Computed example of a mutant assay.
Amino acid sequence: MVADGQRPFDVFAEQLGSAELFMQESKFLIHGNGKDQPPTGFMFEKEQMHGLYFNQSPSKDVALAMVSMRPIPLGPIMEKMPLSAEKYGTGRRFYIQTLDDHALSPDIQEKLVRENPPEGVFKIKGSDHCPFFSKPQSLHKILVEIAQIP
């Protein structure tokens, strides 16, 4: 849901602060090319991931997800996205809002929708950042509904 020329990180800037501040103060940075080189990624601690991503998900699903989690590469989220109407603008876009999301608050999600309106917005009550775990039936229903829109 980023706009042309926006960095994916900018979506989280209200919650995390500026990219520069995040890079200076974050204790979660990974220096894959050595400590003397710029950071290449970041990874939250397990407890933080649980609170941010899986606050409504069943514990067995969270346990499975935790063993699959990998560091998030910084490059793709720190670079401005060049998006054109000819390419990005031709794809149909829908937004599924997760109302109990702690990683991307409902207010931030509403802002994303206002600033870059999709064709439709669907909401899932009781869902965290990962509705495929926390509300799989609701997510399935919405995806089927989207697939049937002419």
Results as ranks from 00 to 15, higher is better:
113 V>I: 15
126 G>E: 12
18 S>D: 05
62 V>M: 03
39 P>Q: 03
31 H>F: 15
52 L>H: 06
73 P>Q: 15
25 E>P: 03
19 A>Y: 04
6 Q>V: 08
41 G>Q: 01
130 C>K: 00
96 I>R: 00
136 P>F: 06
52 L>I: 05
143 L>D: 06
61 D>A: 09
116 N>W: 00
66 M>R: 15
117 P>I: 02
142 I>N: 00
101 D>H: 05
118 P>M: 02
8 P>R: 10
97 Q>K: 12
120 G>T: 05
45 E>S: 11
148 Q>S: 10
58 P>L: 14
75 G>Y: 08
75 G>E: 10
58 P>H: 12
146 I>A: 00
77 I>E: 02
51 G>F: 01
51 G>V: 00
131 P>M: 03
146 I>T: 01
29 L>P: 00
49 M>Y: 14
84 S>M: 09
27 K>I: 11
124 I>V: 14
118 P>H: 03
23 M>T: 13
44 F>N: 08
34 G>N: 09
35 K>G: 03
44 F>A: 11
20 E>R: 13
88 Y>A: 09
72 I>E: 14
129 H>E: 05
20 E>G: 09
44 F>Q: 08
29 L>T: 07
37 Q>M: 15
10 D>N: 12
35 K>A: 12
48 Q>T: 15
148 Q>G: 05
36 D>N: 11
142 I>A: 00
22 F>V: 10
9 F>D: 01
34 G>M: 13
105 S>C: 04
98 T>N: 10
112 L>A: 06
118 P>Y: 02
43 M>W: 02
60 K>P: 12
67 V>L: 09
143 L>M: 15
39 P>T: 06
114 R>P: 02
136 P>H: 04
50 H>C: 11
6 Q>H: 08
41 G>S: 11
116 N>G: 01
60 K>T: 14
111 K>E: 02
148 Q>F: 03
125 K>G: 13
31 H>P: 05
148 Q>H: 09
